[in-house]
Write a protein that binds this DNA or RNA. Structure first.
Lengths: 243, 243
DNA sequence: TCAAAAGTGTTCCTGGTACACCCATGC
DNA sequence: GCATGGGTGTACCAGGAACACTTTTGA
C-alpha cells in the first residue's frame, strides 16, 4: 500500500505498468496442453508467449485476466471458471521496454475451443506441455510455476473437475490427474479414493458413457460442492520421496 | 508483461503505484505475534497497518520487501531469512488516494527485536495475533491470508525452523506449531515425526538446554537441509475434517 | 474372440493416535 | 517431595498400495 508515502503526487515515481498474464491449461487427448500466442512484434517477435495484457485503470488484475482470457479463447462464458493467482513477477529488467510488473494467473479449461488470434498476436494455438517450446520474457518460469501449483492443488482440492466437462466419468477424471502429474494411477484405488472423499463428485443418476470409445460404459458424475478434499488424493511417491 | 501492447509510451496509461506490504510474524512467549505500525497520517491515521512501502524504480518487489523489513525492525541481517510471496492485491479502490497495487509477503522471525518507528509511522510494535486489532486498508485480509499460508506450509516444509533461533529444542519447535495452528500437539508423537522426516532437523552434539526454565534439559537441534517434508507433518483433524 | 475400460474384492503394510511410563531438572 | 518438560515403548486402527478377478462394451 502507499501507507508510508508522505506525498500524493501520482507522478512522483517512475510509472509502473501492470499486466495480467495467463497460463491457460487444458487436457487434450490425454496430454496437457497450454494456450500460447505467437508474438507479432519485437521484442521476441516470432516467439511463443503466454497470453496477457495491461490491467486497465479501473479493473483489478483478476478482472483483466478474465477479460484477456475471453478475448484470446473466444469463450463467452468465462465468468464461472477457476482463475488461480500464481504470483507476481517484478524483476526490473524482465521487459526490455519499460518497467512492467506482471500478475500471473493459471486458468483451467475443460475442452479446448480453438483459439483465435488476438489484436497483436500473429496466431494463437494449443501446444503440448511436453515438450514446451521456448517462450518470450520469463514466461517459461511462469508456466513452470503454474504447472507446479496446479499439480499441487489437484491433491487437496477439487480443481481437477475444472479440466472436465460438466458431466464426466471417473476415467476421464483420472486422465486429468495422470496428464498433469505425468504418472499413471491405479484405476480401482483411484475410484475408491474419489468416492470416499465427501463432496468431491456426485453421481448423475442413470447416465453412462464410454470414456474413449472403448470398454464398459462408465457411470457419469458431476463436480461436488467440496472445495477441499478430505482425505487428500496424494500423488504417488517419487524418487527420494517415500510414501 | 506488456507483450500485447502496441505502443511503447510509458505514460499512455494511468500510472500505477506498486508497493510491497509485509505480514511479519513471530512467536513470543508461546503466542503468535505480528509486527504492526501505527499510521501517522490520513487515510487511516491512528490505525494499525502492516509495514510496507513503495517499490522503487530499480528494485523488485522482493527487494523492496526486504528493505522495508530491515527499516522497520532494525534488523541488520535480513539477507538470509525467508520471505514468502503471498499474492497481489489490485482492487481499484483499495487505497482512496490513487491506484495502488500491493504485492504482499509473509516474513518469519525467530526472536523478536523491538521494532523502531519508521519515517512516517507513529510507532511500531509486536501485537498478539489473537486478538488482532482492526487494520487499515485491506490489511486484515492480507494478514489472514498470511496466517493461512504459513499454517499450511508448516505441514509440508521446514518453515517452522524460521521461527526458531539457529539452535533450538524440539519443545521449542513444537511450540511454534502450536502457536500458529492454535492447537496442542502430542509431545512424543511430534518428536517421532520430526526425527523420522529426513533432513528436517539435525542434532547438535553434546548441547542441551532447558525449554522454559523447567524440566529435563532437552537435546538441541539445527535446521536441516530439507526444503519439503516427507512424510508431511499434518495438523490434527478439525470439525468436518476427518483424519 | 480379443482388447480395453469399468468396477469389486482382498491382502499387506505403513504411518498416525492415544496412551502408559520413566528420566532429569528447578523449586 | 512435586511440578514440569524430555524421552521411550506400545497397542490399536485407518488408509494407501498392489493385484487378482469379473463385467460390459466395440471391433
Amino acid at each position: 500500500m502507499g501507507n508510508t508515502s508522505t506525498g500524493y503526487d501520482k507522478y512522483a515515481y517512475e510509472p509502473f505498468a501492470v499486466t495480467a498474464d495467463l497460463a491457460v491449461l487444458t487436457v487434450r487427448s490425454g496430454a496437457l496442453h497450454v494456450l500460447l500466442v505467437e508474438r507479432g512484434q519485437d521484442p521476441y517477435a516470432g516467439h511463443w508467449a503466454l497470453p496477457g495484457g495491461f490491467v486497465e485503470p479501473r479493473e483489478s488484475a483478476e478482472t483483466a485476466a478474465r477479460r484477456e482470457l475471453a478475448e484470446e479463447t473466444g469463450l463467452d462464458d468465462v465468468t464461472g471458471l477457476h482463475l488461480e493467482q500464481l504470483r507476481t513477477y517484478s524483476e526490473p529488467d524482465r521487459d526490455p521496454r519499460m518497467r512492467v510488473v506482471s500478475v500471473a494467473f493459471a486458468a483451467l479449461l475443460p475442452d479446448a475451443p480453438e483459439p483465435r488470434a488476438g489484436s497483436d498476436a500473429a496466431r494463437a494455438a494449443w501446444l503440448p506441455y511436453h515438450p514446451a517450446p521456448a517462450l518470450a520474457f520469463d514466461h517459461e518460469r511462469i508456466l513452470a510455476d503454474a504447472h507446479d501449483r496446479v499439480g499441487a492443488k489437484l491433491e487437496y482440492t477439487g480443481l481437477a473437475t475444472s479440466f472436465c466437462p460438466p458431466e464426466f466419468t471417473l476415467g476421464e477424471l483420472r486422465h486429468v490427474y495422470e496428464a498433469v502429474w505425468g504418472t499413471s494411477l491405479d484405476g480401482p484405488n483411484f475410484r475408491r479414493k474419489v468416492l470416499a472423499t465427501p463432496g468431491f463428485v456426485e453421481p448423475v443418476p442413470g447416465a453412462a458413457r464410454l470414456t474413449r470409445g472403448r470398454g464398459k460404459p462408465a457411470a457419469v458424475y458431476r463436480a461436488g460442492p467440496a472445495a477441499t478434499l478430505h482425505p487428500p488424493l496424494l500423488r504417488p511417491a517419487r524418487e527420494g520421496r517415500p510414501a
